[in-house]
Computed example of a mutant assay.
Amino acid sequence: MTEHEAAPAKVNLFLHVTGRRADGYHLLDSLAVFGPACDALAAEPAPALTLALDGPQGAALAGEPDNLVLRAARALAARAGVAGGAALRLTKRLPVASGIGGGSADAAAALRLLNRLWGAGLDEAALMALAAPLGADIPVCVPSRPARMQGVGERLLPAPRLPPCGLLLVNPGLPLATPAVFRARAASGAGFSPEAALPAAWASAEAMAADLARLGNDLEAPALALCPPIGEVLAALRALPRVLLARMSGSGATCFALFATPAAAEAAAALLPAAWWRAGGGLYAPG
Score class of each variant (00 low, 15 high):
residue 231 G to E: 09
residue 179 P to N: 11
residue 237 L to T: 14
residue 203 A to S: 13
residue 177 A to R: 12
residue 203 A to K: 00
residue 226 L to W: 12
residue 157 L to Q: 15
residue 228 P to A: 02
residue 159 A to D: 08
residue 156 L to Y: 10
residue 222 P to A: 01
residue 167 L to W: 02
residue 243 V to K: 06
residue 197 A to M: 10
residue 256 F to E: 01
residue 161 R to K: 07
residue 171 N to H: 14
residue 158 P to D: 06
residue 178 T to E: 00
residue 231 G to R: 09
residue 253 A to H: 07
residue 225 A to K: 09
residue 161 R to Q: 14
residue 159 A to W: 06
residue 161 R to Y: 01
residue 254 T to N: 02
residue 239 A to Y: 12
residue 202 W to V: 07
residue 236 A to N: 11
residue 195 E to V: 04
residue 211 D to T: 15
residue 217 N to F: 10
residue 238 R to E: 15
residue 225 A to L: 04
residue 251 S to L: 04
residue 219 L to R: 03
residue 161 R to S: 11
residue 251 S to A: 13
residue 159 A to H: 04
residue 169 L to Q: 08
residue 238 R to A: 15
residue 176 L to S: 01
residue 255 C to V: 11
residue 231 G to A: 10
residue 256 F to V: 13
residue 182 F to G: 07
residue 160 P to I: 01
residue 174 L to E: 05
residue 212 L to G: 11
residue 221 A to M: 02
residue 246 A to Q: 11
residue 252 G to K: 08
residue 206 E to G: 12
residue 218 D to E: 06
residue 197 A to R: 13
residue 207 A to K: 01
residue 170 V to I: 12
residue 232 E to Y: 14
residue 181 V to K: 00
residue 171 N to V: 08
residue 229 P to E: 11
residue 199 P to R: 04
residue 215 L to M: 10
residue 161 R to F: 04
residue 246 A to L: 09
residue 197 A to I: 12
residue 188 S to Q: 04
residue 194 P to W: 00
residue 182 F to D: 07
residue 200 A to S: 08
residue 256 F to Q: 05
residue 233 V to P: 02
residue 165 C to Q: 08
residue 180 A to I: 08
residue 174 L to Q: 04
residue 215 L to Y: 11
residue 243 V to A: 13
residue 222 P to Q: 00
residue 204 S to Q: 03
residue 203 A to M: 00
residue 173 G to S: 02
residue 222 P to F: 07
residue 202 W to L: 04
residue 243 V to L: 00
residue 159 A to C: 06
residue 257 A to Q: 06
residue 223 A to K: 04
residue 244 L to K: 05
